[in-house]
Design a protein around this nucleic acid. Structure first.
Lengths: 262, 262
DNA sequence: CGTTGCTTTGAACTAGCTCAAGACCTGTGG
DNA sequence: CCACAGGTCTTGAGCTAGTTCAAAGCAACG
């Protein structure tokens, strides 16, 4: 991908992610290396940032899965996004420090907290890094737009397919796809709160997709026997993810990078 | 709002908008003043930027209304956002130059195009302006999240209410509310593509709301007899708009600023 | 006046919901 | 080793919010 790999192993996923959406020069790499990290492990279900809270750091996901969620006054819950290693799901808090939703660990995850002050110092020193981080938050927004379209315009099968397609592509960029599938820790109820339907209905949709051999969700793992069919049902067009590698996600996405064995 | 008013009349709405979401110093004001503008009038229905196109300028809305829209492969259409004077709806194209949706004039509108190169120069010279523009795009994203919640979790009456609440608040910030209402150029079909239901159903919802005297949409104009009731139905919480004036939108929002008579 | 675009109405239909119960699995404590 | 509790998945059956199709009413405009 890029010439300069980070010395710190924790930063590999971030580096891969940033390289997939922009150019990471040696100088930018250096600026990133210099960021003071506070490593932490977050247990499944634990909040990292709460709705309404004012935060002074952002959170880089190293390993595991996070999601953003908002509970409505009527007891509903909408999951707003799902995050994979290399993501900084609350980077927006840099300029919007009061959270308007919660960030939660989907499974036990390793994260690195980075103080806003340190990020600001780094991006002031490196304008290209400022722009790349900004771009990252803009792609985030593009993803919201894609989810709005899925929620507003498509039926439940297409919605489920869209979410799985997007995850497949994003996980493949950071080398988390194996055997045509990936670990998927959400319950069917959680998935219902992603796609805006009832858990019962999600169950029936998943059964149908399983029967059609399009996608199999079993034992917290998604297997995709037919990428073509899945993509077709979702009408999935990965352009909105704005990866530099144009072809990413149109054919069955190949893992772009392999994580080193622990 | 702020001490320093722009000398150029075109920039009033922008200045008001920026002041409502952040601090605009004299120096920032100067940097904005220096931006070369290309003024233009766009006819109703005309695209300003097309899905898939690569753009090299952004568009400041001076007067009128714009909306972002995406047409799906199955012939569906989702309206992603509605824009009021002072907005720069495609500011994101600064770092995401390939459009993943279209920007269209809802009615005949006056706009000012600003070249990306000029914006980049201005925000490089003024880091606070960089941050304020970034913040603007982040609030945009927050709005998408709010719409996702409305689409995923609420019934059609709440959806319609939400959209009207948000518009009411945002228009009030730039002084476009009069007689407890505002001009609303969307047809019922357009509104259906905002809230993700059929036009027929929007019609019935509007009739019900009219009967309950919550909101009256007639002759391209929205009148809100009961802000309290409207807000209640939408469960509208304007915190996500991240206005500095905390109270904006909780009580019936007062026009924050009055446009000068032409 | 005739066309065009928007709104309104009716009536049949359906995707997805709710409620409720049973099956299954995993971990915990006795 | 068993029993039980709690979470998840599955199934059935009746219900409802919203859809589709088609037609009619109503402006505004040339």
């Amino acid at each position: 991908m890029s010439e300069v790999l980070p010395r710190r192993a924790e930063l590999l996923a971030l580096h891969t992610k940033l390289s997939s959406i922009g150019t990471v020069t040696a100088q930018m790499s250096l600026a990133i290396e210099g960021l003071p990290l506070r490593l932490a492990t977050v247990a499944k279900g634990e909040p990292i940032a709460r709705d309404g809270e004012v935060v002074h750091h952002s959170c880089l996901l190293l390993e595991g899965m996070l999601h953003r969620t908002k509970t409505t006054a009527n007891g509903g819950r909408q999951i707003l996004s799902i995050h994979v290693p290399g993501d900084i799901p609350d980077l927006h808090s840099l300029h919007l420090s009061k959270m308007d939703h919660s960030l939660v660990a989907t499974i036990q995850s390793n994260v690195a907290f980075i103080a806003h002050a340190d990020i600001k110092k780094a991006i002031t020193q490196s304008p290209p890094l400022n722009d790349l981080f900004w771009r990252e938050t803009l792609i985030d927004a593009a993803s919201f737009r894609a989810w709005m379209i899925m929620l507003g315009q498509t039926d439940s099968m297409a919605r489920v397919s869209h979410v799985l397609c997007e995850l497949y592509v994003r996980l493949s960029m950071v080398g988390r796809i194996s055997d045509n599938g990936f670990d998927f820790p959400l319950t069917q109820s959680d998935l219902a709160d992603v796609v805006g339907t009832s858990p019962v209905h999600v169950n029936r949709v998943l059964q149908k997709m399983r029967a059609l051999n399009i996608v199999v969700l079993e034992d917290r793992r998604v297997t995709v026997p037919s990428w073509h069919a899945l993509r077709e049902i979702a009408q999935f067009e990965p352009a909105y993810l704005h990866y530099l590698n144009q072809k990413a996600g149109i054919e069955r996405p190949k893992p772009q990078w392999m994580p080193p064995k622990a």
